[in-house]
Design a protein around this nucleic acid. Structure first.
Length: 107
DNA sequence: ACACTGACCATAA
DNA sequence: ATTATGGCCAGTG
């Protein structure tokens, strides 16, 4: 698989999210060049399920900090458990202090 | 090649 | 506040 794919670029960014941090689909999309292609970001992660398992997709949430992708994990609890396990506070399936945990993709 | 779908986002009503 | 709609781009049937 070449690195020319939109997906691979997403993978690289997501893999670089540090422990205990989160980012948003919009930010990744914007970082890639198109703010409107946020859907592709989440979609890339969906593909990642059958591509690689090293992608911390649980650290990627939507603009509101809501765990939109939790239903794509095995259980609807996995994403929350993983984030809380890293010190991220989750309240009613959303991140309590999103700005506090937000990580901006700069590399 | 066409139509539909998708882990989003912004705007309009 | 909530619901609808358009836009974005790539993958799949």
């Amino acid at each position: 698989m070449a690195d020319d794919n939109f997906f691979d670029r997403v993978y690289k960014v997501v893999k670089q999210i540090p422990y205990g941090k989160v980012t948003t689909y919009g930010m990744i999309a914007e970082f890639l060049g198109s703010k409107r292609s946020a859907r592709m970001v989440g979609w890339a992660l969906n593909s990642s399920k059958h591509n690689l398992e090293n992608i911390p997709a649980h650290r990627v949430v939507n603009r509101q900090g809501i765990l939109t992708g939790k239903r794509h994990f095995g259980s609807h609890n996995t994403m929350k458990e993983l984030l809380e396990s890293e010190g991220v506070k989750i309240v009613n399936d959303n991140i309590a202090d999103l700005e506090k945990y937000l990580w901006h993709p700069s590399k």
